[in-house]
Computed example of a mutant assay.
Amino acid sequence: MITADPALTVADFATESIAIDQLASQGYVIVPNFLAREQCLELYHYARQLDAQAWQQAGIGRADSYTTNSAVRQDKIRWLQPELPYESAYLKMMDQLRLELNRELFMGLFDYECHLAHYPPGAFYRKHLDAFKGRSNRILTTVFYLNPDWQEQDGGQLVIYGEQGEVLETILPEAGKLVVFLSDVFVHEVLAGLRDRFSITGWYRLNASIGGVIDPTR
């Protein structure tokens, strides 16, 4: 399982890769080797061996507006659960990163939610924003890739767009790579690939609780 001391620690994220500075200056950052290859492979094999019943068809919207639409999104997801060892280890590691981000950037990030995502061959996710200003407490999006030996011809790239619709980044979903970006700023999409594609997508959130209910439906 994932160890408590990954090859690239939270301190490395903040200093050696100067990822914090890049995130602060441009609103997104790409960290090529956030975890060691061996740890990525363990997560990859864990995701692959999950039963079909462990996954659900991904949807769009929230609460009463939640719906599935295969013309927009075709991946399957599994929300991580803290009582399961592999999933707990990842959640704990990302919570360490939350503390580091708060310490360095004073972002006030309150918690973190995330899910495994499986894109079968040909599956895609059309252009979208993860949050809308004033309508969500999702602040930072994280995408961590698990796919070993992924090649350009395999497709499945994450495309991040700028304010004028220009392409800022086209990112290959290679094992060990972490992408972090502001949830309400960057439109992005997932292109169709030729292989099964696995990632862990998550969101750091502010505390928007009302009456003890975190992020209530509005």
Rank of each mutant, 00 (worst) to 15 (best):
I77H: 02
L178A: 12
R73Y: 10
S65I: 05
E166P: 00
K76Y: 13
V72H: 14
L50R: 04
L101K: 10
T142D: 01
Q164L: 11
E104G: 05
G155A: 12
L80Q: 15
D75H: 05
R78T: 02
F132R: 14
L105I: 11
L99R: 15
T68L: 06
A117H: 07
L140E: 09
A131N: 10
V159C: 04
V179L: 13
Q157R: 12
L140V: 13
L84D: 12
P148C: 06
H128Q: 06
Q74D: 07
G122I: 09
L105A: 13
L97F: 10
A175K: 09
R103S: 14
D111G: 07
L84N: 14
P173H: 01
Y145G: 06
A89N: 09
T142E: 05
G59E: 09
D130F: 05
Y86F: 12
V167I: 14
P173Q: 02
D130Q: 04
L146Q: 02
R126K: 15
G176N: 07
G165P: 02
K177S: 06
L91P: 00
D64A: 13
T67G: 03
R135C: 08
G162V: 05
L146M: 02
V143Y: 04
Y90C: 08
L146N: 02
V72E: 12
F124I: 06
T67M: 10
R135G: 14
T67C: 09
D64S: 13
P82N: 15
L97S: 12
F124Y: 15
L91A: 03
G108L: 05
L172E: 13
R78H: 03
H115V: 06
A54C: 08
N102G: 09
D95P: 15
N137G: 10
V179T: 12
V143A: 10
G134K: 11
N69E: 12
L80F: 14
Q164W: 00
E169G: 00
S65R: 15
E100C: 14
